[in-house]
């Protein structure tokens, strides 16, 4: 007897596009910027160059996530919950610019606190993005 062959479903096992090195890098960078900004806020420092550069690089990483998502979509893959997924994706892209604009408006320690808060929210949104790509429980 042959062992039961695995069902030949055409499931692309290439994995989620938002669950790779880019996503990990974005989460790690966001947390690093958050810690840096928190230290700045505690030391009564206004947002410095490092924070703005960090936000810019973070935005580039998030744009990279959009690119790999578009590539996956072009390859026929689809998110589990499209509405939520694209909602989170758009929200995610808006976060670093929001932090940068508000931090520029507030050149005090509280500007650094804003950068910290937004950079703490970013990893949460990345994880939600990953969850809405996977089809949880069908």
């Amino acid at each position: 007897m042959n062992p039961p062959t695995p069902s030949p479903t055409p499931v692309p096992i290439s994995g989620s596009p938002v669950d790779g090195v880019l996503a990990v890098a974005a989460i790690v960078l966001a947390l690093l910027v958050a810690v840096w900004a928190l230290v700045a806020a505690l030391r009564h420092r206004s947002p410095d160059r490092v924070q703005f550069i960090g936000l810019a690089v973070l935005e580039l990483l998030l744009l990279g996530l959009v690119v790999v998502t578009v590539v996956a979509l072009a390859g026929g893959e689809r998110p589990g919950e499209p509405g939520s997924f694209f909602g989170y994706l758009v929200t995610l892209l808006c976060l670093p610019p929001l932090a940068a604009v508000l931090a520029r408006m507030e050149p005090t320690r509280w500007g650094s606190a804003i950068v910290c808060a937004v950079c703490l929210v970013t990893p949460v949104v990345v994880i939600r993005l990953q969850q809405t790509w996977e089809v949880l429980g069908g």
Partner: peptide
């Protein structure tokens, strides 16, 4: 709308985005 208030506004904005997109979906 200055100092800590701006931080508060930022967090309110984040929740406005989160709640409204969730409700819309």
């Amino acid at each position: 709308n200055a100092g800590p208030g701006r931080l508060l506004i930022a967090v309110y904005l984040l929740f406005a985005i989160a709640a409204s997109s969730r409700a819309a979906v």
